[in-house]
Amino acid sequence: MIGMTLILKKINQLIVGLIFLYGIYIITHGHLTPGGCFAVGAVIAGAFFLLVLAYGSDILKLRKREEGSSVAESTGIFIFLVLAFTALIIVTRIFFTNYLPKGITGELISSGVIPLYNIAVGIEVAAALFNTFLALYL
């Protein structure tokens, strides 16, 4: 897939970083403000879509057998499972318990394991969407 014109490439350079930062903002504040893991995955995947659409598929070196995105997808769901099984095996003997201290409701670092789950699933969704896009357009 070939890229687009110079104007689109320049505007892309300005915008993609902002979109990515917005995704990271939503995911770190997922337990405080609206928007959870699935919305964030779509936003971050959208940033990568823009990059690939404007610059063509050469920019990410997509001709390899195994892309980084599929590794990221597996890593996301693996972190999710590890967090869930830590509660079962080490801490409380109950699957999926919130074992970290909860802190004060409304602060950035609060509510125990929930932000970590949020980040893991966000990575997984973003990588999954980007993976399907790459499979379509390679």
């Binding site: 997922g30 337990h31 405080l32 403000t33 609206p34 959870g36 893991c37 869930a84 999926f96 919130n98 909860k102 802190g103 409701t105 409304g106 609060s110 509510s111 125990g112 394991v113 929930i114 789950y117 949020n118």
Partner: peptide, 16 residues
């Protein structure tokens, strides 16, 4: 759950 956003609290705690 300690989460200010009710939806996230339900998604990752009650309906984990």
């Amino acid at each position: 759950t300690g989460s200010a956003n009710l939806v996230t609290g339900v998604l990752f705690d009650f309906r984990g």
